[in-house]
């Protein structure tokens, strides 16, 4: 291959106007041993590209998707069922308030003293209402005079 042709191709290569075939030619050229000094600087590029293509994916591929798919399905349906059960449960759940008796919350002594206090209050209250009876009597008499006038 003539040198000036390669030089032209290199020039074209850096402006990204070479075709795949021309690039293949360049790669092959630079993989040779006898490269002129002024072109030697480009050699590592093309050599690297060629060597980079040698890399392989060596990891073992485990395609156990089939069984995993069934299990995935199972989880999907199980979660749907769980949500359904939960919502139905929530719907039918009506909290029955626990009846709280006085005996549960207070001791016998406390209840007794409270009853005593209430009895006292009632007695005094009745006293008050008795006084109101007098007031009623008073009004009756005053209205008698008032109507007379």
């Amino acid at each position: 291959m003539e040198l000036d042709k390669i030089e032209k191709l290199v020039e074209k290569y850096f402006t990204a106007t070479t075709t795949v075939a021309e690039e293949k030619m360049l790669r092959e050229y630079f993989l040779r041993e006898d490269i002129p000094a002024h072109l030697e600087q480009y050699a590592p590029m093309f050599q690297y590209f060629a060597s980079a293509k040698e890399e392989r994916f060596t990891k073992q591929l485990a395609l156990t998707q089939e069984s995993k798919g069934i299990r995935g399905n199972f989880y999907k349906w199980a979660s749907i069922a769980a949500v359904a059960v939960f919502t139905i449960g929530l719907y039918f759940y009506n909290p029955t308030p626990k009846p709280i008796s006085l005996a549960d919350e207070y001791t016998q002594e406390e209840i007794a003293s409270a009853q005593e206090a209430l009895a006292l209050l009632a007695m005094n209250f009745n006293k008050g209402t008795e006084q109101l009876y007098h007031l009623e009597e008073f009004e009756k008499n005053t209205s008698k005079f008032l109507t007379k006038e």
């Binding site: 290569y13 850096f14 402006t15 990204a16 106007t17 600087q41 480009y42 590029m45």
Partner: peptide, 12 residues
């Protein structure tokens, strides 16, 4: 083409 040309020139 622009990206490729730039990349090649940078490497050089």
């Amino acid at each position: 083409r622009v990206a490729l040309s730039r990349a090649r020139k940078t490497v050089r």
